[in-house]
């Protein structure tokens, strides 16, 4: 999708958040000097094209009680990546599942998934069950719980 000058101004204008007023898109429109209808059409088009993944809320999971946040990393042979990635990605507690490059010799893991839970022991139980149920016993993995969070914000765009 080719973004127009107006799109870029919209992207920058709404990145801090939608106005909490009855007609939020009209308010944005008046800030940048176009019509409400145009704002609605451009935002809808950007969402359709996937430039905007979605509108809505992003929670601070820690504040909502999801304090056990595990990044589970797996060293998967290339020929099993597709199968294992899809199996892990389909689990209900898994919130993300990505392939990333190994950094040998220090880092042999090439599949990353995130599991957010309220208690560490529950997250560990879930991982153990997943390994058994999906036949992943021979795939080396490591669980990296998060400690302190130093920063959480979305990316910023001009």
């Amino acid at each position: 999708m080719v973004l127009t000058e107006i799109d870029n101004r919209l992207i920058s204008e709404i990145q801090g958040g939608l106005p909490l007023v009855s007609h939020p898109y009209a308010e944005i429109a008046s800030r940048i000097g176009i019509s409400e209808q145009e704002v609605i059409e451009r935002i809808a088009a950007m969402q359709e094209q996937g430039v905007i993944k979605r509108m809505g809320i992003v929670v601070r999971h820690h504040e909502l009680g999801y304090t056990a946040n595990a990044m589970v990393v797996w060293n998967v042979p290339e020929e099993r990546l597709e199968e294992v990635g899809n199996k892990i990605g389909s689990k209900s507690c898994v919130t993300l599942c990505y392939q990333r490059p190994r950094r040998l010799p220090d880092w042999p893991y090439n599949l990353f998934c995130m599991i957010h839970g309220q208690k560490r022991d529950k997250v560990l139980n879930f991982i153990e069950t997943m390994v058994k149920d999906e036949g992943l016993e021979d795939i080396p993995h490591k669980v990296l719980f998060s400690g302190k969070r130093f920063k959480q914000r979305g990316a910023r765009y001009q």
Binding site: I11, Q15, G16, L18, L20, S22, M55, V59
Partner: peptide, 27 residues
């Protein structure tokens, strides 16, 4: 609107608005 304001104030929400696709934005 009031409930959303409060959740933002209590920092239960980090943001209310668009989630961008970084790569498709050219980032």
């Amino acid at each position: 609107i009031q409930r959303l304001e409060q959740m933002l104030e209590k920092k239960q929400l980090s943001r209310f608005g668009p989630m961008y696709h970084a790569e498709r934005l050219g980032g």
